[in-house]
């Protein structure tokens, strides 16, 4: 392995609203950096080739597959992982609530990737049909649920988010934009 690949570089990110800093070889995957160097093991690795979606996090608000990125590519960027989704220790995010209520998870391994994918999707499309939800989730694999209750949980999360006053304005604007 050449020196260029193994010389460690400094990486600074904002993760879940906090500044964090680490060092990694340029070849180190972002997924491994998040798990090992940032200690955030809620981001799971299921395939290492960008198909299963378990390792999805938000980079500057957009979903990315961290097994397809190098940690150095995230330098200077803003990350949101599953650990940063809930507003606090006493409260869950509405998508997490909906997953719990509708039994949207079984083994839970793919769940973090779904939650973050759905967060972005519902911001873009706050009132989706079941078919639209299925299409939005088609890049994430789950082997336990047959997606039945993930779809239901997503529709339920959309409902909760629409009913929350702070989201209502946003929701109506988005709906208009969609058309």
């Amino acid at each position: 392995m050449s020196d260029a690949a193994t010389t460690r570089r400094k990486i600074q990110v904002t993760v879940n609203g906090r500044q964090a800093e680490g060092e990694a070889e340029p070849r180190k995957l972002l997924s491994d950096f998040i798990r090992e160097d940032l200690g955030l093991t809620g981001t799971h690795v299921g395939c290492e080739h960008g198909v299963c979606g378990a390792c999805t996090v938000l980079l500057d608000g957009e979903p990315v597959r961290t097994c397809l990125m190098f940690a150095v590519q995230a330098d200077g960027h803003d990350l949101l992982t599953v650990e940063g989704l809930a507003p606090g220790p006493d409260q869950l995010h509405p998508i997490q609530e909906a997953f719990w209520e509708r039994h949207g998870l079984q083994c839970g391994f793919c769940t973090p990737g779904f939650l973050l994918t759905i967060k972005v999707y519902l911001a873009e499309n706050p009132d989706p049909t079941e078919r639209e939800v299925r299409e939005a989730l088609s890049g994430n694999l789950c082997r336990c649920t047959g997606y039945q209750n993930i779809v239901k949980a997503t529709l339920r999360a959309a409902e909760i988010l629409r009913s929350e006053p702070e989201n209502a304005d946003k929701a109506s604007t988005k709906t208009t934009q969609r058309d």
Binding site: R35, E36, L40, T41, G42, T43, H44, V45, T81, V82, E83, L85, A86, L92, Q96, F99, W100, E101, H103, L105, G108, F109, T111, P112, L115
Partner: peptide, 21 residues
């Protein structure tokens, strides 16, 4: 009843094999 294991898993606080080190 909703599952007792879920809150932990939903918060990303599960401890799967590769999370142990």
């Amino acid at each position: 009843i909703r599952r007792v294991e879920d809150e932990r898993l939903l918060r990303g606080e599960g401890a799967y094999l590769d999370d142990l080190c």
